[in-house]
Design a protein around this nucleic acid. Sequence first.
DNA 1: TTGAAAGCGTTACCAT
DNA 2: ATGGTAACGCTTTCAA
Lengths: 348, 348
Amino acid sequence: MTDAPGKPRTTIVTLSRSAGVSTSTVSRALKGDPSISPSMRARIAALAAEAGYMPNIMARTLSSGRSGLIGLVLGAASNPFYAMLLEELVRQAAARQQRFMIIHAGAGPIEDSTAEALLHYRVDGCLITSADLSSRAADICARNGVPVVMINRIPRQHASAVSCDNAEGGGTLARFLRAGGHRRAGILHSGAGSSNGIERERGFTEAFTRGAARIVFRFDARSVYEGGYAAGEAIAEMPAGKRPDCLFAVSDIIGMGAMDALRAKGLRVPQDISVVGFDCIPDGARPHYAITTFRQPVAAMVRRGLDLLAARIGEPSLPDEAVLLRGEIVIRASARQAAGDAWDKAAG
Amino acid sequence: MTDAPGKPRTTIVTLSRSAGVSTSTVSRALKGDPSISPSMRARIAALAAEAGYMPNIMARTLSSGRSGLIGLVLGAASNPFYAMLLEELVRQAAARQQRFMIIHAGAGPIEDSTAEALLHYRVDGCLITSADLSSRAADICARNGVPVVMINRIPRQHASAVSCDNAEGGGTLARFLRAGGHRRAGILHSGAGSSNGIERERGFTEAFTRGAARIVFRFDARSVYEGGYAAGEAIAEMPAGKRPDCLFAVSDIIGMGAMDALRAKGLRVPQDISVVGFDCIPDGARPHYAITTFRQPVAAMVRRGLDLLAARIGEPSLPDEAVLLRGEIVIRASARQAAGDAWDKAAG
DNA sequence: TTGAAAGCGTTACCAT
DNA sequence: ATGGTAACGCTTTCAA
């Protein structure tokens, strides 16, 4: 009981008394039930507004089973992509009267007690954006019938998912580099744990390795700037003849690290070596990087993700669904381009 | 009612029946009430574990008035500082069995309906980290007796706050620059809306302007990289004689933008101009920047912030409190330093 | 169109 | 040391 003595919060009971009607009527009126007469509805609405009535969601949840709360598992904040995602997520959810409870943020593993919080609070559903195996939370959800949607992650286990067409994106970048005359690619990947990265690399490799073009270098950059930097240093030390002529980083942050290392070692980007990334994070647009990349349609991904979740909250028996959204290449200055613009309308 | 027909969730009632005791006993046993006999406590714990019992927080909240939920207002994700803060916040709160409900994330204003969610969900308290005037949420909290703690923000209105000693930090950086022989400083601030920035600048200016040393340039960089970049460009175009010999950016992200612009225009950092920042965000440590900065004790700030909040949740009548934590200078390569290391132990 | 009353799962106060 | 029993605020049949 938090309230100060003289000031009881306005509840549905308070309201019903001052309106001289039953609590059921108030409840119905407030939610716009058509069986309530318009005049009554107006009267109650006025009363509620005047009293500053705030429904108690906890009570509503207890009685109705719906909390309006969505559990959120967020990836490592060191990658600005997740910051973008978070802002968009919060904005769109708020517009739908939904709120996020943060289950986890960051790279570390999710503790069991943390994952279970999502059951304690009776979240309606769960949204997972982490790239690493946050299977723990997903497991718990699955076992308890809590719908799960993953954004930016290939659907594994029981869950729906929406992601950008990663393979297609990788392929597009590969074709762009080929058109720019590159034939020896290096790939900065993010390890076996990242389903996204794997798809991106697959699409890239398939499209790049035609004719004489080959993948001549691979490096696990672990999705962090430092990993990309290390890769760049390694490449700078290769003899000029053995060096790749272009680099595909499965995420911008990695590519940016590589660019910095390459330049620090005296190589010029893109004159000596081209670099392309993936994600289109804001930092990549800085003049210093101007990294050519593949934009994930974040707003659309969030929209579809929330849709998927809402549908499954309403109808839990709906089968899992995986949706792939098309992204688009963003051409900037970090990769050499064919003279003229054969690329522009053609290959896309 | 979400549950499938044959599978009623385990509740305290279920438990009490299978243990042959009352619900009160179960409730007490589960929370470790000393008035319950150890044997009984053990028996119930075992039963609960076996049945996979999950307390329903909604019910608990309804009855006890405590939700364990903290409303979170997060600053613009474009500044990595908030990403750091978020991770630390979530980690520490989880350890205290508290969860965050995100009220808002990002730069935009908070809509009323969003801010009110914090009342709907009966958050125990509210944590505000945004630098801009998120007064709306604070107002609502104040009006409804919800304790508010601000982190990284000077306490305004009714709220407690914990922040790093911004003025002291600015002063330390100023002394460091002076010791390095700088006499003409430029300041990249973040506008009048940011109480932090103002304090940092004040501390800096007071400590820097002794003798012949002067502030020769000010620029509103709006707390974003692009603002810093624009400042850098402006500076690069000044005649060499009128140019500041060092730059104090009230946040790293701004300083980084300035460094990039300066270098893009052919100036060398730190040889031609020194740059120092504030916050110690991870990106600033990259070799490319290696920005000398002032570290905010984020973990400690979060700890004290959560403490403050917990105290006020337990005892709402506690007066507001503002705590200032000492940070420390982090010397890297972006600013010229006095020969020898007169600085090292001395000026601190 | 409206009302009465039975929950929802927990806690807390008052007994025993 | 344990049990009984009201709340907590809202939704939702079932009646009228």
